[in-house]
C-alpha cells in the first residue's frame, strides 16, 4: 500500500464517518461543523486525484461561504430540534422496512450487473498533463464553453433580482440619504446665526428652524 492509498482511505474514512455524524449529531451546530469536515475531506480526495482547482474551490466556496451561512441560519432560526425528532421512534419500523427493501433492490441490481469494459474508456476529457488544472479550465471556460458560462451568469442575475424583489420594501417612515440634497446645501441654508441673549438661551422655534 503506497502513501496516496493510505491517504485515500484516511480521507474517505473520515469523510463517511463525519457524514454519518452530520445526521446523528444531537446539536445542529455540531452537525454543521461535521459537514465542514466532510467538505474538507472531500477536498483532500480531489487533491489526491490531481484536481487541485476543484479542491481549493470546494474549501473556499463550501467551507468558507455555504457552511458558514448554514451556521448563521441555524443559530438565528432557533429551531426546536427535539420536537422535530419526536416522531423518529414512531416511524422507525416503517423507515427500516423501506430502507431494507431499497437495500435489497440495490444488492439485486449490483449482483446481476456487469459493467461493460468499454465504460472505462468513457473518459472523454482526460486530465491534461502539460498544463495546470486552473489553466486547463481557463482555456476552455471562456471559449469552448462560453455559452454555458454566459447562461450561468444570467441565472445568477435572476437570483439577484429575486432576492431584491422578495426582500426589499419601500418604507415611507425610513429616512434615506439624499446625496444631491446634501451637496446642494450652502452656508446660507445650513447655518443660521442667532444672537443669544445671555441667561435666556435660544427659544424653541429658533432651534427647530435651525434643524430644518
Amino acid at each position: 500500500m503506497t502513501l496516496p492509498d493510505l491517504f485515500f482511505y484516511l480521507y474517505a474514512g473520515v469523510c463517511i464517518a463525519s457524514a454519518v455524524m452530520v445526521i446523528v449529531a444531537r446539536n445542529p451546530v455540531h452537525a454543521v461543523l461535521f459537514l465542514i469536515l466532510v467538505f474538507v475531506n472531500s477536498a483532500g480526495l480531489f487533491m489526491l486525484m490531481g484536481a487541485e482547482f476543484l479542491a481549493l474551490i470546494l474549501v473556499i466556496v463550501y467551507v468558507g461561504a455555504v457552511a458558514v451561512l448554514f451556521l448563521f441560519v441555524i443559530m438565528m432560526l432557533d429551531i426546536d430540534f427535539k420536537q422535530l425528532r419526536q416522531g423518529f421512534l414512531r416511524y422507525l419500523p416503517f423507515g427500516l422496512t423501506v430502507g431494507v427493501v431499497f437495500l435489497a433492490e440495490l444488492l439485486l441490481l449490483a449482483g446481476g450487473w456487469v459493467v461493460r469494459p468499454s465504460v472505462a474508456k468513457n473518459v472523454t476529457a482526460p486530465i491534461p498533463t502539460d498544463v495546470g488544472n486552473t489553466e486547463a479550465l481557463g482555456l476552455v471556460l471562456y471559449t469552448t464553453y462560453i455559452h454555458y458560462f454566459q447562461i450561468a451568469g444570467v441565472v445568477l442575475l435572476v437570483s439577484m433580482i429575486g432576492a431584491i424583489v422578495l426582500t426589499m420594501r419601500h418604507r415611507s417612515s425610513v429616512k434615506r440619504q439624499n446625496i444631491a440634497a446634501q451637496n446642494a446645501r450652502s452656508p446660507e441654508t445650513a447655518i443660521a446665526v442667532r444672537k443669544v441673549t445671555s441667561g435666556q438661551g435660544l427659544r424653541e422655534q429658533d432651534s427647530a428652524e435651525w434643524v430644518q
Partner: peptide, 15 residues
C-alpha cells in the same frame, strides 16, 4: 444546456 435552461426558467418562476 437542459439543466441551465431549466434553472433559468424555474428560478424566475419561484420568485
Amino acid at each position: 444546456m437542459v439543466y441551465l435552461g431549466l434553472e433559468l426558467m424555474s428560478l424566475a418562476l419561484y420568485v
